[in-house]
Amino acid sequence: MNLVTRYLVIQDGLSEYVGRAISWLTLGMISVLVLEIVARYFLNSPTIWAHETSTMLYGAFCMLAGAYTLRHRGHVRSEVIYGQFGPRGKAFCDTIIFTLGLVVLWIFFKMSVEFAAESWAVREYSNKSIWQPAVYPIKTVIPVAVGLVLLQNIAELLRAVLVLLGIPFDDPRESEVETDIDPELLDAAKK
């Protein structure tokens, strides 16, 4: 395995690992809210933390999911024109887009680090309910999530540049088929 392939395996693996880890938060959100409903209607004692906890789980989950989505080419794009191009043409477009993306994500990253740091500095708390939880942990998720997307964006850029320059490499993602349809159902349809 050459250096490029090894890098791509590691980077894709990182995004994959984070995505798989945070996917459990879906069950976390369901549990917290079902617990709240049970507490409110069956035990007659609503919690003060369920709404804000589920909101924080939601925020962290969706932000951190960005890199996983990019790794699986799941960010919506229109292929009406792009789809007409050959591989080199597509790589040309991707090079421009992910270069600009790199710049923009870097700005985003720097601003979000500052945003989180300021929240830590004043030990910011939420003022919505009487629970008043700390806000800095959830604000810290932003730079982490943006950083992860930034890293995956670099891998996408590298792929585009190599194809554009005609440098052959083994793309570990090449054999993966991305589908919007449940593979098990698709198998059933094929039978």
Partner: peptide, 21 residues
């Protein structure tokens, strides 16, 4: 397990897309 993993990961992929848009 297989079904649960598919559902959780697909939700992750879709929400990553929706959130960033």
């Amino acid at each position: 397990w297989d079904m649960l993993r598919y559902v959780m990961l697909t939700t992750t992929k879709l929400m990553g897309m929706l959130m960033w848009i």
